[in-house]
Amino acid sequence: MKEDPILSNLITELKRGNLTLCVLSQLKKPQYGYSLLQLLADKQIPIEANTLYPLLRRLEVQELLSSTWDTSEARPRKFYVLSDKGTALLSELGKAWQEHYQRVGALLAEEGHE
């Protein structure tokens, strides 16, 4: 059966809204681009490389992440970690998400009873 394009669009949009939150949540410990990509994929949050890398860069520009280049390995890697600003923001954003998630859940449960 062919996938409904409207549905898949909406699902993509739904996930995209939470992307920043997912990324920030995984950066309490330093990660580089590809390791974060794999980490998220392992936790059932697959994200496209061409979305993640630019997102990391933008979050750095917004000073939510700080970065360091690790040149000790054969290949240089840029490690990102939450800045103080990012940590504070993550906690607020997480709270907001929880609240919203509960409200949406309540709405859906309500419909289920009918």
Binding site: Y32, G33, Y34, R75
Partner: peptide, 13 residues
Amino acid sequence: EVAKELEANIQDM
């Protein structure tokens, strides 16, 4: 900066 990082990421992939 972006070029250096992007290249490293692609190499990793």
